[in-house]
Design a protein around this nucleic acid. Sequence first.
DNA 1: ACCACGACCTGCACGC
DNA 2: TGCGTGCAGGTCGTGG
Length: 284
Amino acid sequence: MPELPEVETTLRGIAPHALGQTISEVRIYDSRLRWPVPGSLPATLTGRALTDLSRRSKYLLFRCERAQVIRKSDHPGTLLVHLGMTGSLRYYSGSAAIPDRRPHDHVDIRLGSGALLRYHDPRRFGAMLWLADPASGHPLLAALGPEPFSPEFDAQSLRRKLRTRSAAIKLALMDNHVVVGVGNIYANEALFRAGIRPTRAASRISLARLGTLVDTVRATLSDAIAKGGSTLRDFVDSNGEPGYFQLDYFVYGRGGLPCRVCGTTLREIRQGGRATTFCPRCQT
DNA sequence: ACCACGACCTGCACGC
DNA sequence: TGCGTGCAGGTCGTGG
């Protein structure tokens, strides 16, 4: 269920329980994700401890180390998990019965405590890869723009990146080189909150309005994370309903309905093949 | 350097 | 009931 808030919610649901645990078994039921899940993954992971769990962009990064480094293949590395469009990674504590595998459950990672991490992804746009150190040098991670909550994401740097770009601001906002973690839903929402029309050329937005946009991107994402967080307890022990539909959207999915602020009928168009919804009155 | 678009894949809601 | 169509949370690779 992945935009950044869902990935962050997944991380927060898993990390406190999985940190420090040792991987006892890895089963790959279907390796056909966006890139093949390496057949060597079970051998690589088994016996390693999860020493750090983090997120970069929409990638989950699980640091895996062996207690004893004897051979080169024992060196620390990182398990990268991406949820694509429809993926989820669920944590089952093992204290209750773990459900039988369902369709589209592709990978099980069993932990020493008896807990289980289960990767599920109907469309298989996600990924599970092993990254040798340094993970940050991997092509998937190396070219990423700033995290939305980092100080590097500010009006000045946004201006610098967008100055020469004729593309619509919504497309630029969804470009991972500009800022990571802003998918279709939150691009629509953040632009509404900023009062910026999604079709406006990225180069033609004032510094002040870019500053507003930085703020609304953060506010939109953190609101969604807060909603997701409210269901964390359920999330951890199954039930897998990461608060995704709990946020009251201003515009996303509301084309033809009245603007929550001014009542004007919201318009829906397509940009880059994705639905864009905006208020023709509030957004200029 | 930038941009537009097809590609990947399954499920679901819709209209006929 | 069944079938075809279009759409869905992402992002990589291509060709211009």
